[in-house]
Design a binder for these strands. Structure first.
Lengths: 207, 207, 207, 207
DNA sequence: TATGAATGAGTGTTCATTCAT
DNA sequence: GATGAATGAACACTCATTCAT
C-alpha cells in the first residue's frame, strides 16, 4: 500500500542525500579539499546532479552549515521551555542535551569549527554563528541571573559564564576526537556544570 | 662592532622569514587555500627559494606547526619548575601564562585547530599534538592529585580535569575571535580555574 | 468569429517563437555562447520543448539561418520582376530595397556574418550562402550587361560589380552598428550605386 | 657566431608563438570554440605555459586583436606621409596598400569581424576598433575635401565616403573567402576607388 | 506533447613541483 | 644558493542531450 513517492518528495530526498554527503565530506576533508565529484559519489548521484540542487560549491557549503544549525537551534534557544526544575537543574539538563547532541553530530561540529577558524573566509556564515551565540546568551542570561539570586551560581558576569560554557563544549570536540566513552562525556558534563556554580557530589549525573 | 651576518645566519634568517609567513598565511587561509607563491611574497623571498628551504608544501606546514609547538611546550611541560605556591596557586599561574600565550599566538592556535579538526588528513601532526596532550596530562596529574589530597581540587578524575581545561582554552580561541579585552581574558581565567576546584572570591585574578 | 487556433497552428506558432528567439540570441551571443536554456526562456517555452521542435542545437541554428534566408531571397532573385525602369533605375530600387531590408534585419545579418566568418565550421550553411551569392550574381549579370550596353554602367566585369556590391552591403552592417539614421542609409545607397555606374546628382535618392 | 638567445629574447619569442597560434585558431574557430589547449598545441608549448604569458583567455584574445591592430595602424593613419601624388593618386595607393594588407591578413581580419559582430560581448575591443575608425576618418577627411575642391572626388559627405570605403574592404573579406586571385583583388581596388570619385579607364590599376 | 531532472564530457584556471640558468 | 619559467594534474562549473513522467 506504500504509495509511490511523489516527484516532489523524490527531489527532496535526493537533495537531502547530497547535503548529507556534503556534511560528511566537508567535515572530514575541509571545504577546499573536498571535490564536488567526491560528494556526488558519496551521495550516489552523478556529478552534474549536485549542481541541479546547489548552485555552487559555496552554496552547498552554506546549506551544509545552516540547515543543521536550524535543527539544533531549539536546543539552545528554548531553554526554559525544554528543560525543567530549578536553575541548576535546568542547566544540568541542558548540558546533558547539548553534550549528547554534540557527541552525535561530530561532523556538523567540525564544520562549525572550520567556519569559526576562518571568519574572513566565511563572513556570512560566521555572522550566522555569531548571531547564534548572541541569541543563546540572551536566552540563558536571565536564567543565570535567577540562579545567582538563589545562590546556586557563581556571582560571575552571566555572559561570561555562558561564553565559557560555549568554549568548553566547542573545545571538547576538538580535543577528544574519538575517545568518547559514555563515561567520559558524562563526566565532562559535571565539568561544564562547574562553570555555572558549585556542584554537590554526583549532581551532574543524576539524569 | 656588529659583525656582518655569516652566511649561515643569513640562511637561518631567511628560513625563519618563510616559516613566519607560512604560519601567518596558513592560519588565515588554511593549508589548501594558501599558495606557496603567497607565502613567498609575504616573506619577501622569491618563489623558488621557498623550495630551497622546505622540500614540499606539506613539509612547510609541518614545520609551521611543530616548531612553534616546541616553543610553547615548556609552558605546558615544566609546570612545577615554572610556577610556584600551593597547587591552586600553581594552576592559577599556569592558566595565567597559558591564556596570555594563547591570546598572543592567535595564528598558531588556528593552525593547531586545523590539525585537530582533521586528524585523518594530518595523521603525523595529529599524533604530535596528541602526544603533547598526553605529556601535559602526565605532568599535571600528580599536581592535581596533590591538590585533591589537600582538599583544594574537586575529587574528579585528574585526567578528566586536565582535558576539560584543555578543551576550554582550545575552545576559547574559536568562540571569541576578536573581542579579547584584557578583562575578558582575565575573567576567563577564573572560569578555567573552576574546572579544577572551588575558587574563593577574586582568587583567579590576584596576579 | 476568431476561431480557436487549431492544434496544428499552435504548434507552428510555438515553433516560430523558438526560431525567433534563436535568431535574436544567436545573433547577439554567437552559436557557442548561446545556451539552449536561454533560447527557451526568451521564447517563453520550457527547456525541453525546444528539443521537441528542433532535434539539436545545430539544427536550430541551421533553421535560424535558412528560414529567414528564404524570406529575403525574392528581393535578390526576382530583380526584373520586382523593380522597374531602366537598368540604373532598377538597380537603384533594388539597393533601396536591400538597404531597407538589412537595416531592419540587423540580427539576421549578424547570423550570416557568423557563418561567412567561419566557412569550415559551418560548411553546409556556408554552401547555402555561397549558392545564394551565385544565384544573385547570375540574375543580376544580365541586367548589368544591359546597363553597360546602354552606357549607364561602368565597363567592369559584371560579376565583379555584383560582388563589390555584396561586399559593401555586407560590410555596412559590420562597420556601423547603431548609428543608422535614415539619412545615413540613404546616402549609403548612393555610394552603393556608384559601384555600378556614374550617378548624376541626387539620383540615388529620388525614391 | 650566432650568439645564444638571451633569456629575455626567448621569452619574447615564446610569447609571440602563442600569440600567433591564438590569432590563427581564434580566427578559424572563434573565441568560444577555441580551447586554450588547442592554442598551446599549435604553439608547441604546454598547456600551462599559455597562462604564464597571458593571464586569461580573454586577455589573450585582447592581445590577439590589439597587437596586430597596432601594426596596421600606420597604413591607415599616416596617409599623406606614406602615399604621394594628387588626392586621387594618394587614395589609389592607399587602397592598393590596404587591399594587399587585408588579402594577407585573412586571420586577423576575421578576428576583427568577430568583435564588430558582437559589440556588447567585447565592449573594450569594440571601442578600440571604433576609435580606430574615427581616427582614420579624421585623417582622411581633409584629403577628401582637398580632392573635392580639385573636382577629383564626388561632392558627398567626406565621412560618408570614408565609411563606405571601410564597409567595402571589410565586407570583401567576408564575401570572398578563398578566391582571391590577384586579378580579383586588383579589380576590386577600382571599385573601391569609385566610392571616392570618377575613375578614368584603368586608373585604379596603374600601380 | 511538454517538461525539467539527470548525466558527464569539455574547458578555463590554479598551483605544487621540477629544473635550467 | 636563488630565481622564476615550464609543466600538467586537478577541479568547479556549463550545457547539450537524453529520458522518465
Amino acid at each position: 500500500m506504500a504509495a509511490a513517492l511523489s516527484v516532489e518528495e523524490k527531489k527532496k530526498r535526493k537533495r537531502a542525500l547530497i547535503l548529507q554527503a556534503a556534511v560528511k565530506l566537508f567535515s572530514e576533508n575541509g571545504f577546499a579539499e573536498t571535490p564536488i565529484a567526491a560528494i556526488a559519489k558519496e551521495a550516489g548521484v552523478s556529478f552534474g546532479t549536485v549542481f541541479t540542487y546547489f548552485e555552487t560549491k559555496e552554496t552547498l557549503f552554506h546549506s551544509a552549515i545552516l540547515e543543521p544549525l536550524e535543527e539544533i537551534k531549539p536546543y539552545f534557544y528554548e531553554i526554559e521551555e525544554r528543560y525543567s526544575g530549578n536553575p541548576m537543574e535546568i542547566i544540568s539538563e541542558m548540558i546533558h542535551c547539548h553534550v549528547e547532541l554534540f557527541s552525535k553530530r561530530k561532523d556538523f561540529l567540525r564544520l562549525i569549527q572550520q567556519v569559526l577558524a576562518r571568519p574572513d573566509r566565511y563572513p556570512d556564515l560566521f555572522q550566522e554563528l555569531d548571531d547564534f551565540v548572541t541569541v543563546f546568551i540572551d536566552r540563558i542570561v536571565p536564567l543565570i541571573i535567577q540562579g545567582q539570586k538563589r545562590g546556586l551560581f557563581y556571582q560571575e558576569s552571566p555572559p561570561l559564564i555562558a561564553q565559557s560554557y560555549l568554549s568548553l563544549i566547542n573545545g571538547m570536540r576538538l580535543t577528544f576526537v574519538d575517545e568518547y566513552t559514555n563515561l567520559f562525556w558524562m563526566d565532562m558534563r559535571i565539568q561544564a556544570l562547574r562553570l555555572f556554580g558549585p556542584v554537590s557530589n554526583g549532581e551532574g549525573t543524576k539524569r
